[in-house]
Amino acid sequence: MVPYLFLGFAALLVATALMVILHRNPVTSALFLVLSFSSLAGIYLLLQAEFIGMVQIIVYAGASMVLFLFVIMYLNLQHDVEKGAQIALRRGIGWMVGALLLLFAGLLAKKGWVSGPVAALPPDTTGGNAAAIGRVLYSRFLFPFEITSILLLVAMVGAIVLAKGRPAPQGEAE
């Protein structure tokens, strides 16, 4: 049952990810991205990572996508398909990045895959998935966790500085 479900979710994930980059309307692309995030959440659930799966839906499919849609709206895409010299430059960069990706994929394939243990490791779920994550995250990965708060702080300050800009002339002088 699980392998078939995995194939289903994986196929949906790849198909929707392709639609994200192939669709001409950026808003539709963003909505396909929601679907691809959701299928990724399904794969997490199959891996018995329930907490990660739910976070994937709440944070990525929910909150991040709102931001993506906002950014798309801000870009003021009156004409969805752009033309001109800009597109040639963008194409060139696209080809370059694609070639780099192929190169890395080739290098990876040459190295060969390390096959994991045949039987899945029994997940450490005493007290549930989230508790297992908590035990590892707040002991072994304490430093990355604390650094995350700095990252969030930087994002907060950056967003405020960008959005509020310099204060109006009658406002406080800075």
Binding site: Y74, A159, A163, K164
Partner: peptide
């Protein structure tokens, strides 16, 4: 947008 960004940051904190 500012409201949305601030929401997502505190959302991650809650996570």
């Amino acid at each position: 947008y500012l409201v949305a960004v601030l929401f997502i940051l505190f959302d991650i904190e809650a996570v």
